[in-house]
């Protein structure tokens, strides 16, 4: 019968209309400014820099190696190396950035910088309310705006941050153990040198005297 398809379709619409009052599968929207969507852990928007401890300048993990600057597809990262060095988490002296700028009006949030970073320094943020009235200065983020504490990173990406924390802790312990072992070895070597010097001064005792008869 002509029109039966139409009626069937209208029945479908009616089903959806009434369904939208009680069926959660048919209510997919959220009332945005009042009600915010919970974003999944993997979610990413723009990059930020992680720092350890309290001081964003001192604890910054970035070593200004410029790998992210090279790999960034849109070339939106700009890094200037500082001339001085500071110790990193294992105590090794590393460079750090004097300038670290990201032009987030150019950044496309692909996450390649976070992926290639060998120092777990640059990570992807989850902020999304970034609109601003000033198109130029407010969208060019400097080191001060980009640096965020490790606790924040742990809050937005708990799994990844947990793994990194464990690894860094292990590295630190290993480095400490190595430093300790090195120090001991050094001390032993020094002692040996001293012993040797003392022994060479005095003639070595004959085997008969050393080994008990």
């Amino acid at each position: 019968m002509l029109g039966s398809g139409l009626i069937k379709g209208l029945a479908q619409t009616a089903k959806n209309f009434f369904g939208s009052y009680h069926d959660p599968a048919r209510m997919v929207t959220v009332e945005y400014p009042e009600q915010k969507r919970v974003v999944p852990e993997a979610s990413r928007t723009i990059p930020f820099l992680v720092y350890d401890g309290e001081d964003p300048e001192l604890g910054l993990r970035c070593t200004a190696c410029k790998i992210c600057e090279v790999e960034c597809p849109t070339q939106c990262i700009y890094i200037v190396k500082n001339t001085s060095k500071k110790p990193d988490h294992v105590g090794k002296m590393q460079f750090h950035p004097a300038t670290f700028d990201i032009d987030i009006s150019v950044c496309m949030g692909c996450g390649i910088c976070a992926e290639v970073c060998p120092f777990d320094s640059i990570k992807m943020d989850q902020v999304f309310e970034l609109s601003t009235a000033d198109r130029f200065e407010s969208l060019l983020l400097h080191k001060q705006q980009l640096a965020k504490p490790n606790s924040y990173f742990g809050k937005i990406h708990p799994t990844e941050a947990g793994e990194i924390d464990i690894r860094r802790e292990q590295d630190k312990r290993k480095a400490e153990a190595k430093a300790k072992a090195d120090a001991e070895a050094k001390a032993r070597a020094a002692a040996e040198v001293q012993n040797a010097a003392a022994n060479s001064a005095a003639p070595p005792p004959s085997p008969q005297t050393v080994t008990p008869a």
Partner: peptide, 12 residues
Amino acid sequence: DPDDYEYEPTPH
């Protein structure tokens, strides 16, 4: 490519 970029304070 032509030089007619808009003036923007880009870091580059």
